[in-house]
Design a protein around this nucleic acid. Structure first.
Lengths: 89, 89
DNA sequence: AAGTGTACTAAGGATAACTTAGTTTTCAAG
DNA sequence: CTTGAAAACTAAGTTATCCTTAGTACACTT
């Protein structure tokens, strides 16, 4: 979903991460289909490329993932306020 | 730091994750020292054992990590409301 | 100084990822 | 509908990484 939102093919995304064009397609597909797991450095580059916090990919449920994306877009000040309101009540 | 806060040795934590007692010490040490990286299933069990969402370990900055912990403790209904308020304005 | 518990490490066997070489699916144009 | 090309996807072998073994090093108490 995050990849398509940016309008990239699996191969294109892989190439932007620095993968060999010959292997980018297979590798990215294996990741998306859950056949294999990328290492953390690769995951971080994916996050940067797609404009989401890397933790997005490790969220258990979609709701928490969406919230995190929304929170990450806010300023540090707004995040501080949010944290305060969450820990208070 | 998180492990010691709970008062567990490397071996004890590993055993609580379901590791063989004979290998728990070496494996956990390799993870903590950064020699090797645990797979995602193991990481999830660590999260459960330490009482944080697994994405917590993948947060780039501490503020986002804290917010996520606080959000994860709220009900699904409250999370829905939060997401709505974040995506609205 | 010795004993005990904890932390840590090298090396080889076990396991999972990466590369290769494709096939299958999707979808727009004719 | 059929074709063609782009995109998605996959099996199998090679390569890279982790897990296990076996043990050493460190910290702390007696």
């Amino acid at each position: 979903m995050a990849r398509k939102a940016v309008g990239l093919t699996q191969q294109q995304l892989g190439m932007r991460l620095g993968m060999d064009p010959n292997t980018a397609s297979a590798r990215m597909n294996q990741y998306e289909k859950g056949k294999h797991t990328p290492d953390y450095q690769t995951m971080k580059r994916v996050a940067v490329e797609l404009g989401v916090p890397v933790a997005y990919f490790y969220c258990e449920d979609d709701l928490l993932a969406e919230i995190m994306c929304a929170v990450a877009k806010r300023s540090k000040e707004e995040q501080q306020e949010l944290l305060a309101s969450l820990t208070k009540a």
